[in-house]
């Protein structure tokens, strides 16, 4: 191993425990690009792209959604610990019963007409984001017998540069399903795995109304900074 060897933070493309990787993982050697080739400026999403209320997933129905209300806060950082500001954060999730508002989800759990499970926001000048939502339920899937996904919220981060683009999943502390979940366990390094687990942050919640959770996200380092920032 030398300093050119990338750290094994991400999962491999082929992870047989997650069956869907079997036919979708490349077999040929990946092309090594010249150093820094992907470290170019990325798309700039204008502020008007996100509307007021887009970060509160609980206010778009006729009444409140079912489930355990929660506030999710955290910071978007780069590899040097610097905040990534004014950057788009998109989330999607199942409802409290473990059902996605999606035509492809046939899980026999009720849809909640007051919850679509979609949110977006920008990080602020300190790289912080905040969502209000409900805790997603677990749900069964067909990967293996008695397979159930741990509770999770999907995150999509654009960062500042293509090299920082990340889609990940946030999990909850103490979830017993983490131990048997191939998606979570596809990350080889146990310490890296744990960085996908949020922590309880009671004071970030709303007294008497919503539990608080904290989840920081660290993207790759990039030399590219959007123009004007």
């Amino acid at each position: 191993m030398n300093d050119m060897t990338p750290p094994t933070i991400d999962p491999p493309y082929l992870y047989p425990g997650y069956r869907s990787t079997l036919l979708r993982s490349p077999k040929e050697k990946l092309l090594e690009l010249p150093r820094g080739a992907l470290d170019v400026p990325g798309p700039l999403v204008p502020k008007g792209f996100v509307r007021d209320g887009d970060n509160d997933l609980t206010i778009h129905g006729k009444s409140a959604p079912l489930g355990e209300k929660m506030v999710l806060v955290g910071r978007l950082l780069d590899a040097d610990g610097r905040p990534i500001r004014d950057s788009l954060v998109e989330i999607w999730q199942a409802n409290a019963s473990g059902r996605y508002h999606h035509p492809g989800d046939t899980h026999d759990a009720p849809l909640d007409p007051n919850f679509h499970g979609i949110g977006r926001t920008f990080t602020n000048a300190q790289g912080e984001y905040r969502f209000v939502t409900v805790k997603p339920g677990s749900y069964p899937w067909r990967n293996h017998p008695f397979a159930w996904r741990p509770q999770h919220i999907h995150f999509s981060l654009l960062g500042n540069a293509p090299v920082q683009r990340l889609v990940t999943q946030m999990y909850f502390p103490g979830d017993p399903l983490l131990d048997i979940d191939p998606v979570y366990n596809s990350v080889p390094d146990p310490a890296a795995r744990k960085r996908m687990i949020s922590s309880l942050a009671l004071e970030s919640g709303i007294e008497g109304i919503a539990l608080g959770y904290h989840f920081d996200i660290v993207l790759a380092g990039a030399k590219s900074t959007p123009l004007g920032i």
Partner: peptide
């Protein structure tokens, strides 16, 4: 700081 790992987008994005 250590990077957050990637996970699949899944079927319901």
């Amino acid at each position: 700081m250590d990077r957050t790992p990637s996970q699949t987008i899944g079927p319901f994005f």
